[in-house]
Amino acid sequence: MNLKAIYKYGSPPNFYRFVTKVEPWCLYFGLLLILIGSAGGLFMAPEDYQMGDAFRIIYFHVPSAYLSMSAYATMGFASIIGIVWRSNVAFSVAKSVAPFGALMTATALVTGMLWGKPMWGTAWVWDARLTSEFILLLLYLGYITLHASIKEQKRADRAASLVAILGIINLPIIHYSVVWWNTLHQASTISKLDSPSIVGEMLWPLLVMIFGYMFFFVAVICRASSAEVLVREKRSNWVKEI
């Protein structure tokens, strides 16, 4: 692995140029995948024998939830890099991920409630997975609020990073909660090792949606972190050339 390349992108002007170039590709590709996945999931996939048409919410609920966790992992990882290498770029990425992650977590919770109400009769239950996802939302909100409350930039970055890093422990709890405890939430349909417990025509739109969301996530982060880098570096020379 070429470490030099990573250090090169760690510098703000290179990061800005790289990210600005990459963003439109990710955006359009992601939107395309989301379109295809939605059409496949909402219209083409056959009705579920137990759940009827309501199971189609899975095509929005699962990508949102998956992304809410990956976004937090990104935020935590970027915070670690920021603290260890004192990198402004890393802190910019972490700060940009937070609102997106919070939105995804809220979406996952809401779509879950909309799925739960007709299916299992209850919009909410305090079982392990739902509670830990709610905890994830609070962690995001805490990060955003803390960052906004501290006036000084560097202090805000480092304080909020501590909160982000502390919350990483929540991620395995969310992921494995359906394995460790008997919860109302159903177990994983897709696993790395076994064959998925869902039939092919229902599976492909789900995978397409997950990838579409991921590319969209990258596009949003590119745009938001480039803006954040500009805010931090607005006095330096390379900015004047853009």
């Binding site: 939605s38 909402l42 048409d53 309501a54 189609r56 919410i57 929005f60 609920h61 979406t107 809401v110 779509t111 909309l114 799925w115 109400k117 007709p118």
Partner: peptide
């Protein structure tokens, strides 16, 4: 439920 999930 489905369409409001999509919308949200």
């Amino acid at each position: 439920y489905v369409w409001s999930s999509v919308f949200i």
